[in-house]
Write a protein that binds this DNA or RNA. Structure first.
Length: 300
DNA sequence: ATTGGCGCCTGAAAGC
DNA sequence: TGCTTTCAGGCGCCAA
């Protein structure tokens, strides 16, 4: 379930193979993921250098040298694997046999990139996505900003997100806090897990109306500062943990995975609340069709 | 305009 | 045991 920290972890894991490398070949094994691949996808990507690899919210952005950006979303089940191939410069592109020997395709491998790094190393980068909720689209060079990116709100990384901004966003919002925090046009990158965790850390009920963190004039109440702080902290901690977990994993089999994390509330239904002195049990409720985990005693 | 619910899709796990 | 049902969740889309 890739949320912002997982996507950032994936970005960091891809960087050695992708950032600055040239796409020697790219192959798609089906016409679509969630959406059809853009027209001439493989032709337009092949031969280009990836001048940088960045992240915006839950999107990975592959910046091509001609100004095109590949917008990648992992959906629910998308992942990348990186294989370092033989460093033999004579072996090459178009030789199917080559790929088969060193990194066989597995089920749901939908996109395969062969990347040549500046130091000569050759990598195969595979996108796998059983449920195909992910997608790859183009941001056209000199074109209008893609709607997928244009709708996004503030990043919860760094120090920019504070109580005042939160209050501004939540002013007049009647939706429950849970829904408001999942709204990517307000804060971009949070998903079900980190919303649950941030609300628990803040002692705020997921059912509480978003506007209840603001005064009638839209000024932040104390809890707004606390929530902003909790969001920044949980995201920061998760990115940190993801990074280290990724390094460990790659040492063994070269694969990338989502980091394991001990959640205070997410998927902890029936377990005791982790707040010192609280012996209440974590509950699961459904809000707009999704699971919310929280402590009814600590979160008001 | 804002908000809530559906459907996309597969695989794992629970239920019968 | 084996088949069926439920659930997971990001997010575009539709409807109230």
């Amino acid at each position: 379930m890739p949320e912002l920290p997982e996507v950032e972890t994936v970005r960091a894991g891809l960087a050695p193979a992708v950032d600055g490398a040239i796409v020697e070949k790219v192959q798609i094994n089906r016409p679509n993921l969630r959406f059809p691949f853009p027209q001439n996808f493989t032709e337009r990507v092949s031969g280009q250098r990836i001048i940088s690899l960045s992240r915006r919210a839950k999107y990975l952005l592959w910046h091509l040298e001609d100004g095109t950006i590949i917008i990648v979303h992992l959906g629910m089940s998308g992942s990348f694997r990186v294989h370092m191939l033989d460093n033999d410069v004579e072996t090459l592109i178009g030789e199917e046999q080559f790929a088969h020997e060193r990194s066989k395709s597995t089920k749901h491998d939908h996109v395969e990139f062969w990347m040549r790094q500046t130091n000569g190393a050759l990598y195969k980068v595979t996108y796998n996505d059983p449920r195909r909720f992910g997608f790859m689209l183009f941001q056209e060079p000199n074109g209008a900003e893609h709607p997928m990116l244009g709708r996004l709100g503030i990043e919860p990384t760094g120090n920019r997100l504070d109580g005042a901004i939160l209050a501004e966003l939540f002013k007049n919002k009647k939706a429950p806090l849970k829904a408001a925090l999942l709204d990517q046009s307000l804060i971009a990158g949070l998903g079900n897990i980190y919303v649950c965790e941030a609300l628990w850390r803040s002692g705020l009920s997921p059912m509480r109306p978003a506007h209840s963190l603001t005064t009638p004039k839209g000024k932040p109440k104390q809890k707004a500062h606390l929530l902003a702080q909790s969001i920044r902290t949980v995201i920061q901690e998760a990115i940190k943990a993801g990074g280290s977990s990724l390094r460990d994993h790659r040492q063994t089999d070269g694969e990338m995975g989502y980091f394991q994390h001990n959640f205070a509330v997410y998927d902890q239904e029936g377990t005791e609340c982790k707040n010192a002195g609280c012996d209440n049990v974590i509950e699961r409720i459904v809000q707009s069709g999704r699971s919310t985990f929280y402590c009814a005693a600590c979160q008001k």
